[in-house]
Design a protein around this nucleic acid. Sequence first.
DNA 1: TAGTGTTTTTATCCTAGGTTAATAGAGATC
DNA 2: GATCTCTATTAACCTAGGATAAAAACACTA
Lengths: 188, 188
Amino acid sequence: MFKVDSYLTAKELLEWNISLHLQLETRSVHEHEVFLEAGQSCPYFYYVLKGLLRVYYYDLNGHEMTHWFSAEDTMITSPFSFFKNEPNILYFEALEDTELILITREQFNKIASKFKSTDERLRNLYADFAMVLSRRIMSVHTEPAEERYLKLMEEHPYLFQKAQLTHIASYLGITPQSLSRIRKNLMG
Amino acid sequence: MFKVDSYLTAKELLEWNISLHLQLETRSVHEHEVFLEAGQSCPYFYYVLKGLLRVYYYDLNGHEMTHWFSAEDTMITSPFSFFKNEPNILYFEALEDTELILITREQFNKIASKFKSTDERLRNLYADFAMVLSRRIMSVHTEPAEERYLKLMEEHPYLFQKAQLTHIASYLGITPQSLSRIRKNLMG
DNA sequence: TAGTGTTTTTATCCTAGGTTAATAGAGATC
DNA sequence: GATCTCTATTAACCTAGGATAAAAACACTA
């Protein structure tokens, strides 16, 4: 998920790790490693300390579709699995060497309690999720692929350094061939 | 937003209204009334006691796009405005005579505290939002309009009694003409 | 009943993007 | 250097759905 104001920061997490005795674990994932697969339960909320993740799934035709990217200092999980007991349908892949903080449901709840006593940041976090998701639905309903591509390039240029164009294409909901055609038109 | 398991129930709300001294207000909205417009701040989380709401916005070409429907016993708000201070871009319209419970941010927080002490339903509520939104993005990326139409009809048949086909079309991200063509093909 | 506005359908034409298949480049590995 | 693999591009053709315009079907009102 892309960066939003209400994300926890690594600094906060590490402070709370001490003050709340969370005993958070970290994990190193190397480039191209798929560290979570569909069918496996997703026991963690992940904080990306460093690196870049891609989250994808397979559609009914067996095509790999990129659902999200998750960059440095953002958080991500499989809501299907982490919060609910529904089977996870998402694959999590590192697009470069990545450092993760793993947050279990129990640790997440402790943090949530902490929030409760201080402010509404957790709620804002969820609201941000909803807004980002809403905007993406609006975007795919109202903007042609070329426009979505240009916006992505403008707002998240770092993606283009690590993610390949097939990933970008499926994130935009088009084929690599179409993306290629769009890029060619933009060159002209 | 469509019904999810974790929604509050009217019964709970009314109980808490008493036990937590919330002093919740209700509001009657008649068919076709637009009771929230873009630009206005949205001070409430709405619980639809009875009736059916449509939430829409205008895209860059000035076309009215249906973003959500909200049926009986579901909750809805403008996350842009209720949680954050971003300007609201959504219009809320009643598709039939509708009874709403209005929940202010303050009342919502009281309820949230109540949750905190008992269970994780609030968090589940947000998680459900995220799941529903995620699924809709996947759907629009991977399913042709005909399939999305059939699924909507199967999962939410009540919509077709009150919402007009132009609403359904823009919810599906297509024009009324295309929807009409799809319906004709399905008849054949 | 006619008259007016709204929703839905039909028809024609057009375009964005899909499908298939081939080509070209860029690392890797031998 | 030669070969293999993976990614990106190109081209030819096709199709879902958009744009425009008009007709038909309702629905409300007088």
